[in-house]
Amino acid sequence: MTHISLKVDGTTYEDDVEPRLLLIHYLRDRLGLTGTPIGCDTSNCGSCTVDLDGESVKSCSLLAVQADGGEITTVQGLAQDGELSELQKAFHARHALQCGYCTPGMIMAARDLLREHPHPTPDEVRHGLEGNLCRCTGYQNIVRAVLDVSEEEVKA
């Protein structure tokens, strides 16, 4: 067992974990933060994307011990005082989700993308989301939602 300390969505947790425990299982099974789902074994689908110390990471391809000392934001930590983040609002308004399984990862990846490219082209949005698979939307409305947010910021 290895002792870890992690801040997740603003709360600090200390736990003893098996070194092999995947970060995603730590979040889901130990902390009960089931908002972030798992979709594959090979880091292709991106459903499990969370933010670790300001960068998007795939929490299925990371050991909990590797994240020790880090600060994690999941989709569950995006809304502040009941106010949805701009991306959450845009995903809703644009119908950028259907079954919703990829949505947490997609939103976290989009958040990372906009941090790096605040005003992306449609093509940059598509490439920025290349690590996140969606089977429902054909990505059409996801791309639109992300562009909406970037345009909002231009206006602001």
Binding site: P19, T42, Q66
Partner: peptide, 26 residues
């Protein structure tokens, strides 16, 4: 050695590698 783990973690999850010790370079 465990570097970023982006190749090794999938291999571990698929149980295609069985190290006894991982030395994390992070």
């Amino acid at each position: 050695f465990l570097a970023g783990g982006q190749s090794l973690l999938p291999l571990l999850r698929m149980r295609l590698a069985f190290p006894e010790l991982l030395v994390d370079l992070g």
